[in-house]
Design a protein around this nucleic acid. Structure first.
Length: 499
RNA sequence: GGGCCGUUAGCUCAGCUGGUAGAGCAGGGGACUCUUAAUCCCAAGGUCAUAGGUUCGAUCCCUAUACGGCCCA
């Protein structure tokens, strides 16, 4: 059987098979390749800070235990340099047989890139200036069976980066930095909200009637109740029920779901902050929005001047305030307002290649013109105010202007970041708004809001005057981390299944 | 939904006018007691996304599909 002999003798060139063989050999030698735990006494960043003044070529008596993933091995025969990566940074192990024994040194040479190891030894700085731990022992904590991507270029294939984010996080340290900023931004927002007296609450994600926004929902089914449920498109109507219940300031940071297209700005599930406060109005929500964004930027970035995709954004100066109608009229070079007839507005939409559909009223047409002509031009933070009633079914009417609402959207870098109103608290008015939404739904608008009778009942018990605001957390993180795509700020962005 | 682009070794990339594929890193064997993308020597590694078509012959040209990217709606 020469074939068989040849196969047995042939070197194994599949990296996974090589590692499996090592795993078997470790077990055969009576060792456990997946340890229970390891007592860590120091981390890479901490050592770098405490030993910053250590001179090249000098040793200390400081004994530490460190742990991390092996990301590089430079084997020089009787010396081996192993680079460990922990959650704070990288640290070199300076391995020599005279410090750790011939057997221990031989085990170091059996390590693979990707293995988790723990090491104990003294701190020194090599003659070449690299802070290192010279271990007296190195223990394998968890054996890796798959090869890591190339050490210099890392992992660049976007599809693999998103599908196997764990690998992306291992080898692309700037990705970890982006997510560390994301977590810091959200923590900053929670601290700020608490400092402003808001309670963080949790409301249902499974809604019998999708509401609080105009968007297509994901539908699901509850078996025991045999009923259709929807993943929430917004938490708004539940949070405002809490105002009725007497909580004066509430907020929620969590996922909402919209059954719509995927783009660099849209993921089917996304994170939103919504906040509601009794006895305030749109002006209070402007202050809150500025406070949240400025606090997050200064705490996480240390500056209110940020660069987004090459554009300088000034978050510090007072944010511009302008009405939709004045902005759109300026851009169109003529009056775009409710003074124009529906036919004139439709003609303007056609002229400027804005979408037009049968049944749209003046308010919807003006909004389309705004989005077509103005929105992407607003690079610096701008509160756009006075949104049409037609597209704002939950906002209070603007006094003296029955076709407008007391609402703003915050636009930065040409994109919507936040949306806020003086809340509609009049149950009779709200019932009329829902009826208009139902009429739109009958006309084929599948984004129209559902008629939520329980929400009306709550309002009829009395909702205090209030301001409310929602801010897209993913987009805020994109802005503050200079990320071009929402996928770069979502740990596991939505992708089609692998074929 | 439409347009354009991409898919070659584990990873990062080459591949000429159509003649059955190369490199670096990783992995394997060897040398080396201060390396930093260590260095040096040797050997190995491929269903060229998938399915069809054109052709004597296809990684290359054509069609479709899958997945991804960018732009538009």
């Amino acid at each position: 059987m020469t074939d068989h002999d040849a196969r047995d003798a042939a070197p194994v060139d599949d990296p996974i098979e090589v590692r499996r063989a090592r795993l078997d050999a470790i077990r055969a030698a009576g060792q456990e390749p997946y340890k229970l735990s390891f007592d860590v006494t120091a981390r890479a960043a901490g050592l770098a800070a405490t030993h910053a003044g250590l001179e090249p070529g000098s040793e200390t008596a400081d004994t530490v235990s460190v742990a991390g993933r092996v990301v590089a091995i430079r084997d020089q025969g009787k010396v081996a340099f192993v680079v460990l990566r922990d959650s704070t940074g990288d640290l070199q192990l300076f391995c020599r047989p005279n410090a750790m024994g011939e057997d221990g040194f031989a085990e170091v040479k059996e390590l693979d890139l990707g293995d988790w190891v723990g090491a104990s030894g003294t701190v020194l700085r090599t003659r070449r200036g690299e802070l290192s731990v010279a271990p007296t022992s190195v223990v394998l904590l968890s054996k890796s069976l798959r090869p890591l991507p190339e050490k210099f270029h890392g992992l660049t294939d976007t599809e693999t980066r998103y599908r196997q984010r764990y690998v992306d996080l291992i080898v692309n340290t700037e990705v970890r930095d982006t997510f560390m900023k994301r977590f810091a931004i959200i923590a900053s927002i929670r601290r700020y909200m608490e400092s402003q007296g808001y309670l963080e609450v949790e409301t249902p994600m499974l809604h019998p009637i999708p509401g609080g926004a105009t968007a297509r929902p994901f539908a699901t089914h509850h078996n025991a109740l045999d009923m259709q449920l929807y993943l929430r498109i917004a938490p708004e109507l539940y949070l405002k029920r809490l105002l009725v219940g007497g909580f004066e300031a509430v907020y929620e940071i969590n996922r909402s779901f919209r059954n719509e297209g995927i783009s660099v700005r849209h993921n089917p599930e996304f994170t939103m902050l919504e906040a509601y406060r009794a006895f305030t109005d749109l002006r209070g929500m402007m202050d809150l929005t500025e406070g949240i964004v400025r606090t997050a930027a200064s705490e996480v970035l240390g500056t209110l001047s940020v660069t987004y995709q090459g554009a300088s954004i000034d978050l510090g100066s007072p944010w511009r305030r302008a009405t939709m109608i004045e902005l759109t009229s300026d851009a169109a070079g003529e009056d775009v307002s409710f003074a124009r007839s529906v036919d004139e507005l439709r003609a303007l939409c056609a002229k400027h290649e804005a979408p037009v559909e049968a049944g749209w009223g003046k308010g919807k047409l003006i909004t389309e013109l705004f989005e077509k002509l103005v929105e992407r031009t607003l690079v610096q933070p701008t509160f756009v105010t006075d949104y049409p009633l037609e597209t704002s079914p939950l906002a209070r009417k603007k006094p003296g202007h029955p076709e407008l609402t007391d609402r703003f959207e915050l636009i930065i870098t040409g994109r919507e970041f936040a949306n806020a109103f003086s809340e509609l608290v009049d149950p009779v008015d709200q019932r009329e708004r829902f009826a208009a939404q139902m009429a739109a739904k009958v006309d084929g608008d599948d984004e129209a809001m559902g008629y939520d009778e329980d929400y009306l009942r709550a309002m009829e018990y009395g909702m205090p005057p209030a301001g409310g605001m929602g801010i897209g957390i993913d987009r805020l993180v994109m802005l503050l981390t200079d990320s071009a795509s929402i996928r770069d700020v979502l740990l596991f962005p939505h992708l089609r299944p692998e074929s």
